[in-house]
Amino acid sequence: MRYLLIIAVVLFSGCNQAEQSDQAGNKTALNKVRKITQKDSIQKVASVALKALKAKDYNRFASCFHPVEGVRFSPYGFIDFTHKQILAKDFLEAIDKHWILTWGHYDGSGEAIKLRVKPYIDRYIYNADYVAAEKEDYDSFIGNGNSINNLKEIYPQLHFTEYYFSGFDQKYNGLDWSSLRLVFKKYQNDYYLVAVIHDQWTT
Rank of each mutant, 00 (worst) to 15 (best):
V68Q: 04
E69V: 00
V71T: 06
R72K: 15
S74F: 03
P75K: 02
P75E: 04
Y76E: 03
Y76L: 08
F78S: 04
I79D: 03
I79N: 03
I79E: 06
I79T: 03
F81P: 01
F81E: 11
T82P: 00
T82C: 00
H83E: 11
K84A: 07
Q85F: 01
Q85L: 04
I86T: 14
I86M: 12
L87W: 10
D90Y: 06
F91E: 02
F91C: 05
L92K: 09
L92S: 07
A94Q: 07
D96G: 08
D96A: 15
H98S: 09
H98K: 12
H98E: 13
W99P: 03
W99C: 06
I100K: 15
L101P: 12
T102K: 13
T102N: 11
G104R: 00
Y106K: 10
Y106I: 06
D107A: 14
G108W: 09
G108H: 14
G108L: 08
G110V: 09
G110E: 09
E111M: 05
E111P: 00
A112G: 00
I113F: 13
K114D: 10
V117T: 07
P119E: 04
P119A: 02
P119Y: 07
I121L: 12
I121A: 02
Y124H: 13
I125Q: 06
I125C: 06
Y126F: 15
Y126D: 00
Y126N: 01
Y126W: 13
N127C: 06
Y130A: 08
Y130E: 13
A133Q: 02
K135V: 04
K135S: 10
E136G: 04
E136R: 07
D137Q: 14
Y138Q: 10
S140Q: 14
S140T: 05
S140N: 11
N144R: 13
G145K: 14
S147W: 11
I148L: 09
N149R: 12
N150G: 11
N150A: 10
L151D: 02
K152S: 12
E153M: 08
E153G: 02
Q157V: 13
Q157D: 13
Q157Y: 13
L158E: 06
L158G: 00
L158I: 07
F160A: 00
T161N: 15
T161K: 14
T161C: 15
E162D: 10
E162W: 01
Y163F: 13
S166T: 15
F168L: 11
Q170R: 10
Q170H: 07
Q170N: 12
Y172K: 15
Y172E: 08
N173C: 12
G174W: 03
L175N: 12
D176P: 14
D176L: 12
S178N: 10
S178G: 06
S179M: 07
S179Q: 10
L182F: 11
L182Q: 07
L182H: 11
V183C: 11
V183I: 12
V183K: 11
F184R: 11
F184S: 05
K186I: 09
N189K: 06
Y191R: 10
Y192I: 11
V194C: 03
V196K: 02
D199H: 05
W201A: 03
W201V: 02
W201I: 01
W201H: 03
